[in-house]
Design a protein around this nucleic acid. Structure first.
Lengths: 198, 198
DNA sequence: CTAAATTTGTAATGATCGCTATATAAATGA
DNA sequence: TCATTTATATAGCGATCATTACAAATTTAG
């Protein structure tokens, strides 16, 4: 019984582009964090008044959830990098290096929106972000399990932990070279873990 | 010309224990984050009214700074673990394992107060926490430089990044076993980095 | 042309934010 | 004793928080 957006209904038509509004919200959430940006500032950047924001998205937390989903689905090319037949060490190393690049690509939106959101003080926002954090861990674990079933959980934990550290580095202002150096060093552990017996 | 606390002065004596008040503040900041706890709640937990808090500590940000310093000096036994003659791989591995244990020791205060504070949305608090984050990186870099001067900066970056990831894991609710598994896997990269030529 | 439906902008809600003006209480120094 | 100094508690400051009443505007259905 939840109303979904119908392309054409009866009343007054919406005066703003929902996707463009979400783009603006994503930029602000990424730059300032969930708690660092207020609804008034969000609404202004989205070119909308607060009541329209609430009518369209429900609440600040629900807006954040929609932004998180868009980001999680598009930020990292996980499905491309972790294709079924890919060599595990190379694929995971590539994922870390791409993360290092993407986390530093936009100086005004450093780090990973999901991983940073998962650490926020607001329990509602953190919970919603953690859903995607865990989804990413599960995605990596499934990939690793194809070749190293017994190590999948630990390797996935390790990957998410490394990416969380890279995200924090990016937010601390480190540049792509420093992030990449850390990513490459982290890859040494992948090599050891996945190519030696144990 | 900054007034320092004198053990005895003229006026009415302070009615609370400054150190115990800082303990309470540290517990709340650690549990809820700088932005997650308000001055009113801090004052109540410290057994003090807001004006006394401001008279004793200056501001919320300055109180946080004092808490950070206490925490940074006492949370991890860095000076013991990174003693001058210690073997680098073993010492740094031990530091990661101790961090994993400490970050999960108190379920109500998971993670590292400094590393989590350095990530907050409040620029004032984040800046003050980043001072200690960088101090830790410098401390580790100096230790590594004794034996591997050319790799000190990258290894220090790596260590801080790993610890930041472990702190995020702790805040996500992972237990000490999962954190330790990640720490041990991260140690494989230390072994590779510091015992092979390059 | 009218009624129902939906979005719009204006303006305000109560709550909480960090912080402080004010007056009183309690200590010391003269 | 009495002025000075410092800490105390009460109470409230303006600002901002997420959220929403409300009425005017704009659409389609009948």
């Amino acid at each position: 019984m939840v109303d979904k957006e119908k392309s054409k209904g009866r009343g007054r038509p919406r005066a703003f582009d929902r996707d463009r509004a979400l783009d603006q919200a994503q930029a602000l959430f990424h730059a300032q964090g969930y708690e660092g940006i207020g609804v008034a500032a969000l609404a202004q950047a989205m070119g909308v008044n607060p009541p329209s924001l609430y009518a369209a998205f429900g609440s600040k937390a629900q807006l954040f959830e929609e932004v998180l989903e868009r980001y999680a689905r598009s930020a990292l090319p996980v499905d491309t990098l972790l294709a079924e037949g890919a060599e595990p060490v190379a694929a995971l190393t590539a994922l870390l290096r791409v993360a290092a690049a993407i986390y530093t690509a936009d100086p005004q939106a450093p780090g990973c929106l999901v991983l940073e959101g998962a650490r926020g003080a607001d329990p509602d926002a953190a919970l919603r972000a953690r859903v995607w954090r865990e989804a990413s861990a599960a995605r990596i674990a499934a990939f690793v399990a194809h070749t190293h079933a017994g190590k999948a959980a630990t390797v996935a934990d390790y990957m998410v932990s490394i990416m969380s550290g890279l995200s924090a580095d990016a937010r601390a202002g480190h540049d792509v070279a420093r992030l990449t150096a850390v990513a490459d060093m982290a890859a040494l552990a992948l090599q050891e873990m996945l190519t030696k017996a144990g």
